[in-house]
C-alpha cells in the first residue's frame, strides 16, 4: 500500500481533505457581491433543458431560466446572511447527506491494487462461488396413463438394474427430456421444489429412485455432476471489485463520522428514564 493511499484512508486526513476541497470550491471568502452570468451558466441551462425536452430552449425560455437562477442566487445569499440556513432540518439533512457521499467517495472509488483485491477475495471466499449443477435425463409416469404412477416408476426402476437391463421410457410429456448443467434454481423453475431437492441430493451418476413432482413420478438419470466450487480470483474479479468498493464506501462513511464525532464533546442531558431511548 503506498504511503499516499495509506494516508488517504486516514479519516482525519480525509476530513482535512474534504475541508480543503470545500474551501477550494467556495473559493476565496464569499464576501464579494458579484454574481457572474456567463457562458458556463448558459451551457448548463441549455444542457439540462435539452435532456428534459429533447430540444434547446428558445431565447425567451433561456432568459426566464437565467432570471430564475439570478433570483434564487440573490435570495439564497440574503438568507444565508440572515443565518436562515441554521436549524433548517431540510438543509441540514441535505448537507449531512452530501458529507456522507463525499466520505464514501473518498473511501471506495478508484482502482484497487491487485494484492488488495486478492486479499479481499481470500477473506470473503464465501461470497464468490458458482452453484452446483447437474446434467440429467428424465422420464415421467403420469396419473393419466397409470392408476398408480409411483408403482409403475418403481417397476421401471427395478428393471434398470435387472439382467438384461431395460431403459425406462415413461409417458409423453412436454417437460424437457434432458437438461445440461442445471442449477437447483433452474430445476425448481421447471419441475418444482421437491424434484429439485431430490436431484440435488444425488451423490453420483446413474439412475435415482423415483422422485415425485406435481406432474407425476419421475425416474431421473444423473449424467453429470458439478459440485459448487469457489470462483478463482480471475473469474470473480469484477464481483470482487464491486463488493470491495461497496464495503470500503460503507467503512469510509462510518470512519469519517467517527473521526468527526471525536472532535465534538457530546453532552447528554436527559432525564434517566429517557437515556436508554437516546440514539
Amino acid at each position: 500500500m503506498s504511503t499516499l493511499r495509506r494516508l488517504a484512508s486516514e479519516p482525519l486526513v480525509q476530513f482535512l481533505a474534504i475541508g480543503a476541497c470545500v474551501f477550494a470550491l467556495a473559493g476565496p471568502a464569499p464576501s464579494s457581491d458579484e454574481i457572474v452570468i456567463d457562458e458556463g451558466l448558459v451551457w448548463s441551462i441549455t444542457t439540462r433543458w435539452q435532456a428534459a425536452r429533447q430540444r434547446p430552449p428558445t431565447q425567451a425560455e433561456l432568459d426566464e431560466e437565467i432570471a430564475q437562477h439570478l433570483r434564487q442566487e440573490v435570495l439564497t445569499r440574503e438568507a444565508m446572511k440572515m443565518g436562515l440556513h441554521h436549524d433548517d432540518i431540510v438543509i441540514q439533512r441535505r448537507l449531512a447527506q452530501k458529507m456522507d457521499f463525499l466520505a464514501s467517495d473518498l473511501g471506495g472509488a478508484g482502482a484497487f491494487g491487485m494484492d488488495e483485491l486478492r486479499a479481499w477475495h481470500t477473506e470473503h471466499a464465501e461470497l464468490f462461488t458458482e452453484p452446483a449443477t447437474v446434467g440429467l435425463r428424465q422420464v415421467l409416469f403420469t396419473e393419466e396413463q397409470h392408476t398408480d404412477p409411483k408403482d409403475a416408476a418403481w417397476v421401471a426402476y427395478a428393471a434398470i438394474s435387472a439382467d438384461p437391463p431395460t431403459v425406462p421410457t415413461g409417458d409423453a410429456s412436454l417437460l424437457p427430456a434432458s437438461l445440461e448443467a442445471a442449477t437447483a434454481q433452474d430445476l425448481r423453475a421447471t419441475f418444482g421444489p421437491g424434484f429439485a431437492s431430490g436431484v440435488m441430493k444425488a451423490e453420483g451418476l446413474g439412475w435415482l429412485p423415483p422422485i415425485a413432482s406435481s406432474f407425476g413420478v419421475h425416474l431421473v438419470e444423473v449424467t453429470s455432476l458439478t459440485p459448487a466450487r469457489p470462483l478463482s480470483f480471475e473469474e470473480a474479479r469484477d464481483d470482487v471489485q464491486a463488493e470491495l468498493t461497496r464495503a470500503r464506501r460503507m467503512q469510509a462513511r462510518e470512519d469519517f463520522y467517527q473521526a468527526a464525532l471525536e472532535r465534538y464533546e457530546v453532552i447528554w442531558d436527559l432525564p434517566d428514564e429517557l437515556v436508554a431511548e437516546a440514539p
Binding site: 481533505a17 480543503a20 476541497c21 477550494a24 457572474v36 458556463g40 451558466l41 448548463s44 444542457t47 467517495d105
Partner: peptide, 18 residues
C-alpha cells in the same frame, strides 16, 4: 461568486477541484 456548473454532481466537482 465563482460560478459552479450546476449540472455536475457534487462529487464530480470535488474530483475536478482536488
Amino acid at each position: 461568486m465563482r460560478h459552479a456548473h450546476p449540472l455536475l454532481p457534487f462529487p464530480a466537482l470535488l474530483a475536478f477541484a482536488c
